[in-house]
């Protein structure tokens, strides 16, 4: 009787969505770029968390952009942005240390 390897498939929490962080020129890079993020998080909360991941100094600014076009408000939720701008079930967010798309 042949044994079958059971592959554990990572199940996505329905309260989370996948966010992909896209670096712009001159920003610190990370090995992992896709994360499961709580839908209810605001951009302000996401920014605080991502700053710690990037180990940014307090005086360094961090800007998020959607669709390489606009910067979402700090109290906009990840869920709202995902519902409007996801592609292939992934919300892509570009990050920059200075104004990139005015």
């Amino acid at each position: 009787m042949s044994t079958q390897k059971q592959r554990k498939k990572k199940v996505q929490d329905p309260n989370n969505v996948i966010v992909k962080f896209i670096p712009t020129a001159g920003v610190p890079l990370t090995k992992i770029t896709k994360f499961q993020i709580k839908k209810e998080w605001t951009i302000g909360q996401l920014s605080t968390w991502w700053r710690s991941k990037l180990k940014l100094d307090e005086n360094q600014s961090l800007l998020f952009y959607i669709q390489q076009s606009f910067s979402p408000s700090l109290d906009e939720t990840v869920e709202n942005l995902y519902n409007c701008f996801q592609a292939g079930n992934i919300l892509s967010i570009s990050y920059a240390l200075s104004v990139t798309w005015g």
Binding site: I66, Q67, S69, F70, S71, P72, S73, C84, F85
Partner: peptide, 10 residues
């Protein structure tokens, strides 16, 4: 202005 751009993108 970014909120305006967001609505335009939609």
């Amino acid at each position: 202005f970014h909120s305006f751009k967001e609505s335009c993108f939609l």
